[in-house]
Design a protein around this nucleic acid. Structure first.
Length: 291
DNA sequence: GTTACGACCTGCGAGC
DNA sequence: TGCTCGCAGGTCGTAA
């Protein structure tokens, strides 16, 4: 599933293969992939024709191509891919949008099996941090790999929340880029159970957790991201290798790399959480808390 | 304002 | 062989 490292791999690929090129035709093959572009497919195609791609930028799991005073915002959702393919290459089964350039070079293809992802053309604005970002991304917090990310600020904000720590990690308005996989990995590395209440965590515990989140995503980025299947690939269609380094996520029944206890899976927020029951002690259930 | 939860969506594998 | 069902999970709208 594309989280920060996977999206950064795609952004890097677009910087290499799309920046500096001028868009020509845009073919929308599935309306759901542009559902956030309310003016529709024809409007998107018309407004993109002839536009020069000036830069490829990212915040958290959102990436965007800068087009003068606007941006083409791309979110990969759960299964989205951005592929650079020769015009003669056969269409992918789940090809949703085809972007053709005026140089007749490789096409940019948005491929998305589950259609949770999508693109939209959006105005650029300045957010609270003074950064120039698309309007639709302005509410997204800085991610741990952003040089302006301030650990003490996020630490305070996280401990002010009255919720469980994994829920807070997945809240993109608090800290962005972290999804289910890296949340579980950061919690395992920090020896924290995801159901611990944020208000019960010490400043040191939160600092450790955020630092581990940054480190695990940096490691994943160095290995090209995490891939379990063909659903995540870079712009050249190649998979990353970090899934071989996962300690918790997807490791149900496998021995913990620290203590040898068997990794457990439990349902949380309509998805799965993986943790070591010995290293990551669950908090005592309190009356009134569901789960 | 904050928090929790369901809906959206499609392919795959398990079970019958 | 073919059908049904559960599972995967990021984001947003809605309810409390």
């Amino acid at each position: 599933m594309p989280e920060l490292p996977e999206v950064e791999v795609v952004r890097s690929g677009l910087e290499q293969w799309a920046v500096g090129r001028r868009l020509d035709r845009v073919e929308v093959r599935h309306s759901r992939s542009i559902r956030r572009h309310e003016a529709g497919a024809d409007d998107l195609a018309r407004r993109l024709q002839g536009r020069l791609i000036e830069a490829a930028q990212r915040r958290g799991k959102y990436l965007w191509l800068v087009l003068d005073d606007e941006a083409l915002v791309i979110h990969l959702g759960m299964s989205g891919q951005v592929l650079m393919m020769p015009p003669t290459a056969p269409d992918e089964t789940h090809l949703r949008i085809r972007f053709t350039f005026d140089d007749s070079g490789p096409q940019m293809r948005f491929v998305d099996q589950r259609t949770f992802g999508g693109v939209q053309l959006d105005a650029l604005t300045f957010d609270d941090t003074g950064s120039r970002v698309p309007v639709s991304v302005a509410h997204i917090a800085l991610d741990p790999l952003d040089p302006r990310f301030e650990l003490p600020t996020v630490n305070r904000a996280l401990r002010r929340r009255r919720t469980e720590v994994k829920r807070a990690l997945l809240d993109q308005t608090l800290v962005s880029g972290i999804g289910n996989i890296y949340a579980d990995e950061a919690l395992w590395r920090s020896r924290l159970h995801g159901r611990r209440l944020t208000s019960s965590l010490t400043r040191a515990e939160v600092n450790g957790l955020l630092t581990q989140a940054e480190e695990v995503m940096t490691s994943a980025l160095a290995q090209g991201g995490t891939s379990f299947d063909s659903l995540y690939v870079n712009v050249n269609g190649q998979s990353g290798y970090f899934s071989r380094s996962l300690e918790a996520y997807g490791q149900e029944g496998e021995p913990c790399g620290r203590c040898g206890s068997l990794i457990v899976r439990e349902s949380f927020m309509n998805r799965s959480s993986f943790f070591c029951p010995a290293c990551q002690r669950a908090p005592r259930r309190r009356p009134g808390l569901r789960g």
